[in-house]
Design a protein around this nucleic acid. Structure first.
Lengths: 255, 255
DNA sequence: CGGAGCGTTGATGAAAATCAAGCTGTGTGG
DNA sequence: CCACACAGCTTGATTTTCATCAACGCTCCG
């Protein structure tokens, strides 16, 4: 009878065919539960979302959607990482935001019905939950406080974007690279026994450059310098921060 | 009885004391009516907002609020311009967004209850409408579709912020200045008979520099060069774009 | 008339992009 | 299992861009 209230019978009826593996359902439910975007959602609506959700795998480098496309799904990262990118006319890409497990993508543009301002590319092999836009919309109608969660999420991203504008306008490359690195520590940092922090992701110099607004050569030189000072330890696509407080110092020091 | 429904008796009762001039009420009502943020609002709620609104004058350079403060009002620009700024540790300021008549400020941070990520400074002598946060919140509760307007507004600003990140990461100073100029054309451009567009605001080189992520010297040199090519005509704090299409060309040309 | 705020211009230097060449680790296919 | 190709990384040399420092002109206003 949940079905008749919400009027999404077609999705519910589809479920048996689409969902063979019980553990897929479990994964979806657990992921959705811990999304800040769904905080405070009534159990019945969460179940509805779980029922209509699809899950899809994206290989590293694959695109979930492209700049300018019209949104038809809301995406939630279950496992892996997805980065939101914009491309310049001359083919460079810039990373606007990096989404990790639990982060939503395409949500806002779905709700307001505008085409994407950027593309979304899997930065790692990732599992992503897909929710039909109409269902997400209906769920929010049923429980308007969710809109506040959405607003908080966008506000957070806006704040982050403004911070980056400030950094790009006023700061030197080394500092911006330090900032990008520390942001990654927040997202995928794994503390080691000796106080070091390992970044649990594949990360090329190019990636860091696209996050910092600089070039891969500059990133390479900077990391080499840091490694000489034993601030970090890096190898191909791997990065461990040995002394995080020094990076913090680089970010905070005056002038 | 609108009062008892909404429970904002105290504001309603305050009105007679606070509002001596009838034309102030008219100005407030007309401004609120044309706000995209209040599009679709029921008349009764608009009246409520009009009743509880205050209007305040800010001189050029005066701050409406400062970075880090807790929001207690929602601001709507009625006349003039207000810019949202962030400050760096070494005292420089960066303009994040320029608000013109009808634009809301502090709205999102009010709704999510977080301190401001930047300050708001009157860029011209301005009249600004102040709405108590609690009333705005109550109005949105009464008419949830308004939340969508809010979301649209934030999404627009996020899009703009991302565009600026892309520009700052990849583009040269002249192009960024051209972009900032064209953005101002959109906001305060007044078309002239001869096809030129005059910017209806006081605008120093420093202002343009803070919008473009460069320095006042670079802006000065660029404008001088443009003036030599008869693209613009500028005098102290005044700017007229004689050939807008050339600026568009600078923004769009490859490499 | 004098000063404050805005604007111009020049000289200089630092930062970082760009161009270039070669190295290294990883994975793949023969 | 080896070789080899490729993607990622390093390093050096060169050049461009722009910030910075500095000095001075203009004009508005008290």
């Amino acid at each position: 009878m949940r079905v008749s209230v919400l009027g999404w019978r077609q999705y519910i009826l589809d479920v048996p065919q689409r969902r063979e593996k019980w553990w897929v359902t479990t994964l979806i439910q657990q992921t959705l539960e811990k999304c800040t975007i769904f905080k405070g959602i009534p159990a019945v609506l969460l179940t509805l979302l779980t029922d209509v959700a699809e899950i899809r795998h994206y290989a590293r480098g694959e695109f979930l959607y492209h700049q300018g496309a019209e949104p038809d799904w809301v995406y939630i990262v279950a496992r892996g990482m997805v980065r939101l990118v914009q491309h310049t006319e001359d083919g460079k890409s810039i990373t606007m935001h990096t989404c990790v497990s639990g982060d939503p993508l395409a949500l806002v543009f779905s709700l307001i019905g505008e085409p994407f301002s950027g593309g979304a590319e899997a930065a790692e092999d990732s599992d992503v939950i897909l929710l039909p836009v109409e269902v997400v919309w209906e769920v929010i109608q049923q429980h308007p406080p969710l809109m506040l969660n959405v607003l908080k999420m966008v506000a957070g991203r806006l704040r982050e974007a403004h911070n980056r504008i400030r950094e790009l306008s006023a700061e030197k490359a080394e500092r911006r690279i330090a900032r990008s690195t520390l942001r990654l520590v927040e997202k995928v940092g794994v503390p080691m026994l000796d106080g070091a922090i390992h970044l649990d992701m594949r990360l090329t110099r190019q990636d860091l450059a696209e996050m910092s607004g600089t070039t891969l050569e500059t990133v390479s030189r900077t990391l080499t310098a840091w490694e000489r000072e034993a601030i970090i330890k890096s190898s191909r696509e791997r990065l461990t921060i040995l002394q995080p407080h020094i990076l913090t110092g680089i970010v905070e020091e005056l002038e």
